[in-house]
Simulated assay, not measured.
Amino acid sequence: MLALKPPSISFDKVLPCKKTHHRSPTPLLRSRRTAVAAAASGGGAATVAVVDSPTRVEILSEALPYIQQFRGKTIVVKYGGAAMKSLELQDSVVKDLVLLSCVGLRLVVIHGGGPEINSWLTRLNIQPQFLNGLRVTDAATMEIVEMVLVGKVNKSLVSLINRAGGTAVGLSGKDGRLLAPRPAPNSAGLGFVADVARVDPTILLPILSSGHIPVIASVAADEAGQGYNINADTVAGEIAAAVGAEKLILLTDVPGILEDRNDVASLVKEIDIKGVRKMVEMGKVAGGMIPKVTCCVRSLAQGVRTASIIDGRKPHSLLLELLTGDGAGTMITG
């Protein structure tokens, strides 16, 4: 469960940037990084002296082109993985969301909660089961999924954002018929697991126009009221398309798309749909990355401008992706 620990705001990890999406750090940043690293090894007091107020102001001012680029635009963020489990990374994500909202970005957050669901199932002596990467969801499991995603994780995340100075509104795919589910192709083996048949963003639009942050649990119900569990990546991609998002961001437990899955240094920083499909055909994108890449490609095909798979284990990864030239993972373009 998300901890209700109020985050402390710090801007010293926001990197300077230019208008290109990926680039090497500026000389200012290189010298500052070197000085801070040296100070950290020899004493903490020197670190404060290096990152003085003029330096902080200059770093923040260099984010201006990115703020101007994304101000008033809708950014859909899928939040899960390591960034959800670690208290420090929770604080980082919440700070990023609040800061981005304050400078005018329209944010939609879709969250998962797999580890918490597994924990509750284990407490109830129910063995978690998966088929092709999707959770097998019988009636008892569906009850736990809804309790955790809607009753616990969603409320906790909303509380964290509000306590940090943002204004979040908790929702699920059931609210306002936001999501219409379609049983998964192999539903006989998966149980109450669905794809997204349709998105009705009516309930989201006034929330976004008011500057609030909708936080959405990835469950839905059919016309008879039966609940369904839907993959959060899939939900994020379909909602991004439905609201005409400028960008879709998936926070993950991996650096992004790797040219060599065993070599972190082979990170592909930018790639188009054609390139992604080629990597899938060659087997360079496999396993759990395939559904993430698929939802990114589907969202781009439906009008989302860019989609990024970023490393949620990095503190302030959202700011790195949106307000710097380095990014924090792989950006996919149409």
Score class of each variant (00 low, 15 high):
Lys5Pro: 00
Pro7Ala: 15
Ser10Arg: 06
Leu15Phe: 13
His21Thr: 09
Ser24Ala: 13
Pro27Leu: 15
Leu28Met: 11
Leu28Ile: 11
Leu28Gln: 03
Thr34Ile: 03
Val36Met: 13
Ala39Tyr: 00
Gly43Phe: 03
Gly43Val: 00
Ile67Thr: 00
Gln69Ala: 09
Gln69Met: 08
Phe70Gly: 03
Arg71Pro: 02
Arg71Ser: 14
Gly72Phe: 07
Lys73His: 03
Lys73Gln: 11
Thr74Met: 08
Val77Ile: 14
Tyr79Pro: 04
Tyr79Asp: 03
Gly81His: 12
Lys85Thr: 10
Glu88Met: 09
Ser92Asp: 02
Val98Asn: 08
Val98Asp: 03
Val103Ser: 02
Val103Pro: 04
Val108Asn: 06
His111Phe: 05
Ile117Gly: 09
Arg123Leu: 14
Leu124Ser: 07
Gln127Cys: 04
Gln127Lys: 15
Gln129Cys: 14
Leu131Phe: 07
Gly133Ser: 07
Gly133Lys: 10
Ala139Arg: 14
Ile144Pro: 00
Ile144Asn: 03
Val145Ile: 03
Ser172Lys: 07
Asp175Val: 06
Leu178Pro: 01
Leu178Cys: 01
Leu179Phe: 02
Ala180His: 07
Ala180Arg: 15
Pro183Cys: 14
Ala184Tyr: 12
Val199Thr: 05
Val199Leu: 08
Asp200Val: 05
Pro201Ser: 14
Ile203Phe: 01
Ile203Gly: 06
Leu204Tyr: 04
Ile207Cys: 10
Ser209Arg: 13
Gly211Ala: 09
His212Cys: 12
Ile213Thr: 04
Ala217Phe: 09
Ala221Arg: 05
Ala224Leu: 14
Tyr228Asp: 11
Asn231Tyr: 03
Ala232Phe: 00
Ala232Arg: 03
Thr234Lys: 06
Thr234Ile: 10
Val235Ser: 07
Val235Glu: 07
Gly237Thr: 04
Glu238Tyr: 06
Ala240Ile: 02
Ala240Thr: 02
Ala240Leu: 12
Gly244Glu: 15
Gly244Leu: 12
Glu246Tyr: 04
Lys247Asn: 07
Leu248Lys: 09
Leu250Trp: 00
Leu251Lys: 06
Asp253Met: 02
Pro255Val: 08
Gly256Trp: 05
Leu258Val: 01
Asn262Val: 05
Ala265Gly: 15
Ser266Gln: 10
Val268Gly: 10
Asp272Tyr: 02
Ile273Lys: 15
Gly275Pro: 01
Val276His: 08
Lys278Gln: 14
Glu281Met: 12
Met282Gly: 08
Val285Met: 15
Gly288Asn: 05
Gly288Met: 14
Met289Pro: 01
Met289Asn: 04
Ile290Gly: 00
Ala307Glu: 07
Gly312Cys: 08
Pro315Lys: 02
Ser317Leu: 09
Leu320Gly: 05
Asp326Ser: 14
Met331Ser: 04
Gly334Trp: 10
